[in-house]
Nucleic acid binder design. Structure first.
Lengths: 192, 192
DNA sequence: ATGAAAAAATGACCACGGTCAATATTAAAT
DNA sequence: ATTTAATATTGACCGTGGTCATTTTTTCAT
């Protein structure tokens, strides 16, 4: 006997999500505690885990939302044609992705879907990032000896590398943007 | 008044390390519990944290050791000259790095040193990986329009990308080796 | 040998994510 | 309106990483 989804379900879920957003707003993602969220939402702890498999699932949703907004912004502008333009267009996304060490680590951890069944919000965002970049590259004046798919995968790999090094004290001499530009010049318009 | 380092210190540390190795040997890295390690080592829990800052610090040591052994192996052979040879030389390292999801995630998380002061075993391994590849590339017949440093950084970025996708159900059609070969061909010997 | 100070080890304790049997609420069938 | 079963909520409880005041052991100057 299938019963309709209850009103209070979506209400509780909304309460949890907005409580979590408030916590993050003031203290960042890293500092979020499930106990604090449920207290702010006025529900029991068990309720949280009835709505989200685990804390990471909530994080995936919230981080995925923000990242999707960045990708919306990237898609809204006129398609970038050059490496600096591409980097500029992706800047909001990259900036958010490296806003917190915690966020970056979680993004990497969930960037790939473990099972085809559970493509989470973050895995979806990575797919979308890839697709957006691929479309740009197709219309831009880049090397044509390999497919746009491959080029886009490479852009993603280099962006992740550059973001990783942003957190690394050993490589802090070069800025993120400079490094990524060096990578992408060499990747997208080789002269060798 | 500075006092000499005590014998029991290194003995206790050795006990903890070998106990941890035994646990990992039988159940893998993911399953390691600090309580189990201290029980096997016959010490109190507090002692563990007097020897290692946290569980991750122990993991860094053990994983770094194994990875260093893989890099020893890579350096022992004759320097690879072609992309397939490079991939073959790095195979033990890549294989270990992706042996467990837990291991891969930890590697990525500690691949960069947060502060110059604390270059951990894993950050050191990544530096070493980079250096080894760079030396190979200098002696191989690869594109010369960009520096070997840059090429080596790219190899690392693509290797990480290929390893990431190994855990991803969405991209399981292509094997790790095939994917990495495609990446490195396009990166190291572009024809565009 | 003795006393003092530094180093090491201890284990009760805490923080926090996550579980689950019990309870409460809701929607539909009668 | 009453019953029934699916759904939602609860909070005591657990597992595990990590802390710290206290105790034990070692080292060294005398």
């Amino acid at each position: 006997m299938q019963k309709a989804i209850q009103n209070r379900t979506i209400k509780t879920r909304a309460k949890l999500l907005s409580a979590a957003e408030a916590v993050i707003q003031s203290d960042g993602y890293q500092a979020l505690r499930v106990e604090e969220v449920v207290k702010a939402a006025g529900v029991a702890k068990g309720t949280f885990f009835a709505h989200f498999n685990d804390k990471d699932a909530l994080m995936e949703i919230l981080i995925g939302e923000r990242l999707n907004a960045c990708l919306d912004q990237a898609e809204a502008g006129t398609p970038p044609k050059t490496v600096p333009e591409i980097i500029a267009a992706l800047e909001p996304a990259h900036s958010f992705m490296t806003s917190e060490r915690y966020v970056f680590d979680l993004l990497i951890r969930y960037s790939g879907a473990t099972a085809v069944a559970d493509i989470g919000p973050i895995a979806y965002c990575f797919e979308r990032y890839f697709r957006v970049v691929m479309l740009w590259l197709e219309a831009a004046d880049m090397r044509k000896d390999v497919s746009s798919e491959l080029l886009a995968e490479g852009v993603q790999a280099f962006a992740i590398q550059a973001m990783s090094l942003r957190f690394c004290a050993l490589h802090s001499a070069t800025t993120f943007t400079d490094r990524l530009e060096t990578y992408l010049d060499a990747w997208l318009t080789p002269t060798g």
